[in-house]
């Protein structure tokens, strides 16, 4: 699709908005529908759109697979880490109330962090899924789509 100028232009305009929307969903999840997972999917979708329009090589330059693998893992680590922090601060695993002096503030902080972890992992995995499928070649295939 490298020759479709219109797609190129529109994609370039849209992708930033998609990203911003993703961030909005990420951090507004407390007040409206949305949260880490939905934000992650949308964030990932931004890269996927980029990949569809500009080709997978270009996408891999922006988000090299090893980096994406790492961020996917870091998301899980962040989530688990917040849980473990709760354990070290005298609460149970995943108890956010102890993260801060005020339990409600602790809950806020905890949810913010773990939602971020969720978003990170989900976005990364979405990119991984797309890139893996896009990068795969059947042994007998001829086309270079």
């Amino acid at each position: 699709m490298k020759q479709h100028l219109i797609l190129h232009v529109i994609a370039k305009i849209m992708i930033p908005f998609i990203m911003v929307f993703a961030l909005y969903v990420q951090f507004h999840g407390d007040y409206g529908p949305g949260g880490g997972f939905q934000a992650g999917v949308i964030f990932g979708a931004g890269f996927i759109l980029y990949g569809i329009v500009f080709g997978k090589e270009a996408t891999m330059k922006i988000v090299p697979p090893p980096l994406v693998y790492t961020t996917a893992a870091l998301g899980v680590l962040l989530y688990t880490g917040v849980g473990v922090a709760g354990m070290f601060l005298g609460g149970e695993f995943l108890n956010y109330s102890v993260l801060s002096a005020d339990p409600v503030a602790g809950q806020h902080l905890g949810i913010l962090l773990i939602e971020f972890g969720v978003g990170m992992t989900v976005a990364s995995v979405m990119v991984i899924l797309f890139l893996s499928f896009a990068d795969y070649r059947q042994p007998d295939s001829q086309d270079t789509d």
Binding site: G29, D30, P33, P103, I111
Partner: peptide, 11 residues
């Protein structure tokens, strides 16, 4: 009162 977030689903 426990979590302070209006979206119950998120809580």
């Amino acid at each position: 009162s426990e979590i302070g977030i209006p979206n119950v689903v998120t809580s």
